[in-house]
Design a protein around this nucleic acid. Structure first.
Lengths: 337, 337
DNA sequence: ATAATGATTGTAACCACTTACAATTAGAAA
DNA sequence: TTTCTAATTGTAAGTGGTTACAATCATTAT
């Protein structure tokens, strides 16, 4: 049977309270006593029981990470960064994947709360910033622990967010494309991508600023799977049948790659005949030829900020409820600028 | 304050023992009593405290997943599948990432044990099947909980493994390549890839079977980062300066993509001048043109098997300590067969 | 009607820790 | 030396569950 705090207290000739104090770094222990206890603990390879500890402390220094799909490259990266930051600060993480299912999300929220996590981080939640029935469970949960939103925002008490200014980034991307001589742009977007509406707005505004008419007809929605490149390429092909375009702005790299494949299939040269910009600056950008220009939404910076904010909140400090970073266009071979 | 079992027992007019029985699906409760208790629980949104529960049960139905880098596409997928399988069976998971660091691995193992996980799953551990000092900590941990190895093997009590027969798969890949008329093969491998030695052996054997001389000189080791495609392409380029080859077998898709990029850069046509086979059948295979032929090592099958085995073990059933699946060559555009 | 049996339920001990509060100790001041 | 104070330590009461065992209840056989 595993050793308990009683065994240690006995071996050390002190009370369990003293052992507990040593365990918790309480100052009210004589240095010599502390050393003796630590030595006994060391010698016996004692590790305190996490449950009993959690019961007493009401916390297990664990935060829940709720993410749609940890195998998505973008989300996987986010989860990885979050993990690393948390571990570096002495927190563990409990990962739950919802598979883009709202019901699952609600259930996992409850489950995480029942596990007494200190906070819940939501990754890849396609968030609308206003309170509505859809995120009632978030509001409920926020009554119990701080809720952290990565790359999303939702203004509500005890909810903290980090964001990339996607709208501005896409706006800049579209504008740069037009500046480099690309006349006919199209915007491709998908349901899985984060802040899709914001990006769309950025695109539309950029075109309107240049007096492009009928912007609406230059926006195309793909609702298939993002790892099915045949389908994505078909999607682009179908657009080409009806709409002439020489520039593509996409809401994620996968769609952009589809455009690259379309161009290669039809003998269009990139970026001369077709300029393409993706989003997320994922590893995919390097897989195609030429390499894909993409928008870096500062994921690592965001995760860092989010954890710092979380640590502050848990430490009862006053923290900003929203931190916005600006995106960065990483220029590669699929654009002329 | 959160409700306790006492509150529920009071509201339901029964003892806490009865509530506990209902909570744990114990049969010794009258149907009408059970219903009443369940109704009260439902009405009051009661969730039992996980710590107290864990203390009583000695388990929190949580398993630790220890993985080198959850942002690696292959590992991320593995983690995702494991998660899904575990959740479907009522288990939570605690994810730790070691960053390929042996010391970190040891520490996390201890940490997970102190959190009283029911088992630890190792993902992406580049494993040697023999006991040595390197995996002493695995052996230690196996004394406390079953250790599950995904895509790796290690024969030791209370350690269970699933594997792909990588050696056979690479052997078949190399042989098929030669059958399709490719004379000069090279093998590219990296330190991060799983069962690198086995794959290498498969390659060597295939060549030896065809009486290729000096097989050793056709094997090349890349030790840079796998997301740096410029470096990988350079790596391939350097090989080409010294060694003539018309076929590439790679230990992972990233290296294979490097070969594709090398060919494109030098105007070689694929698969006519250069045939290429990757490993893992990752999403990267679809990003390049032509799409990459790759070996599917049955990750999903493996994760499924691993969790089934784990559930059996936790249920005190006798389970196979090793499950081997055969790989599958997914034929695409970079090979002639 | 009574006893025996099995189904249901309750009592209370236990799990391994934290922590408020009380008790003790040591050192400084009087 | 005595008294006071602060530092250190111990006692014991939670913490919210599980579960062995005892008690009660209902049912059936005698």
């Amino acid at each position: 049977m595993a050793l308990t705090i009683y065994d240690i207290s006995q071996k050390a000739g002190v009370s369990i309270a003293t052992v507990s104090r040593v365990l918790n770094g309480n100052d009210n222990v004589k240095a010599s006593t502390r050393e003796k206890v630590l030595r006994i603990i060391e010698e016996n390879d004692y590790t305190p029981n996490a449950f009993a500890r959690g019961m007493g402390l009401g916390s297990m220094r664990t935060v829940g990470i709720l993410c749609a799909d940890s195998s998505d490259m973008f989300l996987a990266k986010a989860v990885y960064y979050l993990q690393q930051e948390l571990q570096a600060n002495g927190y563990e993480s409990l990962l739950c994947c919802t598979g883009y299912n709202q019901d699952a999300k609600k259930n996992y929220l409850e489950l995480l709360l029942s596990k007494k996590v200190d906070s819940i981080i939501l990754v890849g939640s396609n968030f609308i910033a206003e309170a509505d029935a859809e995120n009632q469970h978030i509001m409920d949960a926020s009554k119990q622990v701080p809720i952290m939103l990565l790359n999303a925002a939702f203004d509500y008490p005890n909810v903290y967010s980090t964001l990339c200014d996607d709208q501005a980034a896409v706006n800049e991307a579209a504008t740069s494309l037009m500046d480099s001589g690309v006349k006919e742009l199209v915007y491709l977007f998908d349901s899985y991508s984060y802040s899709g509406n914001k990006k769309l707005k950025g695109f539309k505004n950029a075109l309107k600023d240049r007096n492009v008419s009928d912007v609406e007809s230059r926006v195309f929605y793909y609702n298939g799977k993002l790892d099915d490149f045949v389908a994505i390429t078909d999607f682009v092909e179908n657009i080409a049948k009806k709409t002439k375009f020489s520039g593509v702005v996409a809401s994620c790299d996968a769609l952009a790659i589809g455009a690259v494949k379309y161009a290669q299939k039809h003998g269009l040269s990139i970026p001369e005949d077709l300029s393409i910009i993706g989003y997320n600056d994922s590893i995919m950008t390097a897989c195609c030829t030429p390499e894909l220009t993409s928008i870096d939404n500062k994921l690592e910076t965001q995760t860092h900020q989010l954890i710092q904010t979380l640590l502050g909140v848990l430490d009862k400090k006053e923290m900003p409820t929203r931190a916005v970073f600006s995106g960065n266009i990483v220029k590669r071979g699929t654009t002329r600028f």
